[in-house]
Amino acid sequence: MDSAPSSSTVSRTVILLLRVLTFVFLLIALILIAVTKGTEDTTDGPVEAKFTDIHAYRYMISTIIIGFVYNLMQMVFSIINVVSGKRVCGDFGYVFDFFGDKIISYFLISGSAAGYGASEDLHTFFKAQDLPFNSFFAKANASASLLLLGFLCNAIASIFTSFALPKKA
């Protein structure tokens, strides 16, 4: 007889995979934005820019950290769920997953949008001042892109957690 895994086992495994992907994207985005700095030479001397100089980038790093911590916690819960087949928080865990995933998804997309917006606006402004900071804004955009990918993985995971909610509520 051919024994296929149950749909709940597949669902738990897919959620774990999505959480791992979100974790990886957020980790790389965090590292990338944290090391982002640029220097341009001017007639008055070198001008340096760091991510801490721009409020939108600080907001972006805050959303990355919040998402990172939440996702790390959810990864642990998912691993326990896949290995043992039992939920850590019982039936309340379904509601927590549903609302937590929704809220964190919104945080992640807002952080990504803030990073993109700041990069585009400031790049245009600095370019007009003959201070292109090309590598600085390229790294910030790459971090915002990874944050966007992290949002997508988290949003897809939230769809899977929403499927489980009506069954257990």
Rank of each mutant, 00 (worst) to 15 (best):
L21W: 00
L21M: 12
F23L: 15
V24D: 06
F25D: 08
L26C: 14
L27W: 08
L27H: 00
A29Q: 10
A29F: 10
A29H: 09
L30V: 05
L30E: 03
L30I: 05
L32F: 07
A34V: 07
V35D: 15
V35Y: 11
T36V: 09
K37R: 02
K37M: 13
G38C: 04
T39L: 14
E40L: 12
E40P: 00
E40Y: 10
E40G: 06
E40H: 08
T42W: 10
T43E: 15
P46I: 02
P46W: 04
V47P: 03
E48G: 08
A49K: 10
A49V: 05
K50H: 05
K50Q: 04
F51K: 05
F51A: 15
T52C: 04
T52K: 01
T52L: 04
D53A: 01
D53Q: 01
I54Q: 07
H55E: 06
Y57M: 05
Y57G: 02
R58A: 01
R58G: 10
R58V: 02
Y59G: 08
I61F: 03
S62G: 13
T63P: 06
I64Q: 11
V69S: 13
V69R: 10
N71S: 15
L72D: 11
M73F: 08
Q74I: 03
Q74L: 05
Q74G: 07
M75T: 06
V76N: 05
F77A: 12
S78H: 01
S78P: 06
I80C: 01
N81I: 02
V82M: 07
V83H: 13
V83F: 09
K86F: 07
R87P: 00
V88E: 04
C89W: 05
G90Y: 03
G90F: 02
D91M: 07
F92Y: 06
G93Y: 02
F96T: 12
D97Y: 03
D97N: 08
D97S: 11
D97M: 00
D97F: 01
D97W: 00
G100F: 02
G100W: 03
D101H: 01
D101A: 09
K102A: 12
I103Y: 07
I103W: 08
I103A: 15
I104K: 00
Y106L: 15
F107G: 14
L108V: 13
I109D: 00
I109K: 12
S110K: 04
S110C: 11
S112E: 00
S112L: 06
S112R: 10
G115N: 10
Y116G: 14
G117H: 00
G117M: 05
A118T: 05
A118L: 01
S119W: 04
E120W: 06
L122F: 04
H123Y: 06
T124L: 06
F126W: 08
F126R: 03
F126Q: 06
F126Y: 08
A128S: 13
Q129R: 12
L131Q: 14
L131I: 00
P132N: 11
F133Y: 09
F133P: 01
F133K: 04
N134Q: 13
N134M: 11
S135M: 12
F136Y: 13
F136M: 11
F137Q: 09
A138I: 07
A140G: 12
N141V: 09
N141G: 11
A142W: 04
S143N: 08
S143Q: 05
S145R: 03
L147Q: 15
L147G: 10
L147I: 10
